[in-house]
Design a protein around this nucleic acid. Sequence first.
DNA 1: CAGAATCCTGTCGGATACTG
DNA 2: CAGTATCCGACAGGATTCTG
Lengths: 143, 143
Amino acid sequence: MEEGTSNSPSYSCRTEDDYGVMQWHVREDCEVRQILDRIADKWSLLVISLLDRQTLRFTQLKQEIDGISQRMLTTTLRHLERDGLVRRTVHPVVPPRVDYALTPLGATLHTTIQALVDWTEHHQPEIAAARAAYDAAAAQSAP
Amino acid sequence: MEEGTSNSPSYSCRTEDDYGVMQWHVREDCEVRQILDRIADKWSLLVISLLDRQTLRFTQLKQEIDGISQRMLTTTLRHLERDGLVRRTVHPVVPPRVDYALTPLGATLHTTIQALVDWTEHHQPEIAAARAAYDAAAAQSAP
DNA sequence: CAGAATCCTGTCGGATACTG
DNA sequence: CAGTATCCGACAGGATTCTG
C-alpha cells in the first residue's frame, strides 16, 4: 500500500525545544494531532456519523457517502479500524460480506464529535456573517 | 494571494442527490466541514489554544508555535479572522505592532475543542494499544 | 515588525483497471 | 462483493526573498 499504513505521524512534533513557557502546547498537540487527523480528514467524520446509527456493509457505506471513491473508503475504514474506532467483520461466505460497526471507543468519540457538530450548526450564521463582513471589507480596500 | 481567500469550499458537498434516507449526513457535513477544516488544519488549533490564554503579537505566536513558517502563520490568522474567531488589531506605530486575540465566538469554539482534546488525552492509551495490535496482526499476515 | 510575493515539493485523493 | 494496484493531477505548505 502506498499510504496509510505508515507509522510516522504527519507532523514534526519536535520536543527538543526549551525556550518558552508555553511550548508544552506543541507537545500536547502531538497526541491531539493524531486523533484530529483521523476525524478531520475528508471522509472519516461521515463514516463515524453513519456507523453510529447502525452497522453497514462496504457497499452500503459507499452508497450513503456521496462522492467517495472506493479507494478512499477503504483507506478511511482501515485507519479507523487501526485506531480501534471501527470493527471490521468478515463473513466467510461467497460472495464476501463485510460489516463495519463502531467500537465502544468509536461511540464515545462520536459523542464528543457531536458536540463540535452542534457548535457548528449553532454558530454557523455568525461565521457566515463574519465571512461576509470580512469579504466586504476586503473588496472595499482592494477594488 | 494564491490561496486562502477563495470563497469556494474545498469539498463538493453535492446536494442534488435524493436516493437515500440518510443522505442528509452529506448535506449536514457541508457546514460542519467548513469549520472542521478551520480547526483541523495544520496550525489553527495551536493558534486558538495559545490565544485562549492571552493576546499575542505576530512574532510571539511565531515563537510559541515551533516550526511554523510566517507564511502559514499569516494565512492561518487570516482564515481565523475571516471566520470571526480571531480579532486582529493594528496599532499605528512604527515599528508596526499587531495584536491577535480570540473573539467571544472563538472562545466558545475553544471550549468545544477542549472537549475533543480531553477525549484524546483520556483515550490515547486505548488508541495506542489498538494501533499496536493492528500493526502486530498486519505484520503477522504479511511477513 | 509584520507581512506579501514567488518558487518548489510532498502528499492527498480521484479515475481507472484488475482480482479472490 | 469487497477490495488491491497504478497512474496522475491538484493543492497544502515550506524556504526564500522583498517591502512599508
